[in-house]
């Protein structure tokens, strides 16, 4: 069956909304220095300013521009999220693919390891690990990936097992193709939609976990992040100013996660025709 995944997602209104939001977010993050006149760490001199034409979302306790912080926070979120999504999906493909191709004993060992990892509560361990390692951006990506890959690996394994039995793969084998060729030309392309779905799912979870960790203050304190913004804003909840500080960060985070969720829904609908009305 030939499915035009891109067309399916475009036709879905949720999918369109999700993708649109993501694109806008990415553009804002990339164009942060153009869209904002301040640097996020720059002291403007005026503290606790309400939103005005000079400071679009006001300033914080040390006089930094919140709009600038929000934009640079999007950079962190998207960077860590996409990095962790890519890395964890790579691990998933590696483990799931290997389990499917090896079969037998190797399959059992890998899958039991996955089961064990899924049983570990990620937040507690992440907090402990983050507190212990004091991770920077790249370390955080690796740490998040370590928690994200097992779920994907399971999916990939089951898909790869069914793809492996597809007739066109059998046909390619009867032309004398090697396994690397099969994986490159047939299995990965056939797994494409599933891989994208896993990427989106992991992206969402990674964004959320990153925000959570920085909210708890176990991430790198020098990096501007939505989680850290919310945590700092909450310290000033006794003043009136907190809402200009806390709400934008919370809304941005919610929007990102919602956009990813919508995209994921649309994708799933495209992959699984039974979900179609």
């Amino acid at each position: 069956m030939h499915i035009n995944y891109w067309g399916e997602i475009k036709r879905d209104s949720l999918g369109r909304a999700g993708m649109g939001t993501l694109v806008v977010l990415a553009l804002l993050a990339i164009g942060a220095p153009i869209v904002s006149q301040y640097q996020p760490a720059e002291y403007t001199g005026a503290i606790f300013q309400p939103p005005s034409s000079q400071y679009w979302l006001g300033t914080n306790d040390v006089g930094q521009d919140i709009w600038a912080q929000l934009l640079y926070g999007a950079r962190t979120s998207l960077l860590i999220g996409s990095g962790a999504a890519l890395l964890s999906t790579f691990f998933s493909v590696l483990a799931g693919g290997m389990a499917a191709v090896l079969g037998g004993f190797g399959d059992r060992v890998l899958m039991r390891a996955v089961d064990a990892l899924i049983a570990v509560p990620p937040v507690i361990v992440a907090i402990l690990a983050a507190a212990y390692f004091r991770p920077g951006a790249s370390m955080l990506i690796i740490l998040l990936s370590a928690f994200l890959w097992p779920g994907g690996a399971r999916l990939i394994r089951s898909q790869a097992l069914s793809v492996k039995e597809r007739m066109h793969i059998a046909a390619a084998r009867t032309f004398g193709s090697s396994w690397p060729y099969l994986i490159r030309r047939h299995i990965i392309p056939d797994l494409g939609p599933v891989l994208t779905a896993i990427l989106v799912l992991n992206f969402r979870r990674a964004v959320f976990m990153e925000a959570g960790l920085s909210f708890l203050g176990v991430a790198d304190p020098t990096v501007i992040s939505w989680g850290k913004m919310m945590q700092q804003a909450l310290k000033f909840s006794y003043l009136e100013v907190w809402k200009w500080w806390l709400l934008p960060a919370g809304a941005a985070l919610s929007m990102t996660i919602a956009a990813l969720t919508f995209t994921g829904f649309a994708l799933e609908k495209a992959i699984n025709p039974r979900l179609k009305k």
């Binding site: 030939h2 597809r166 007739m167 066109h168 046909a171 390619a172 009867t174």
Partner: peptide, 13 residues
């Protein structure tokens, strides 16, 4: 070898 179902034995891609 020729397979039973040509639609399946040729990759739709």
């Amino acid at each position: 070898m020729i397979f039973q179902n040509p639609m399946e034995s040729i990759s739709h891609r």
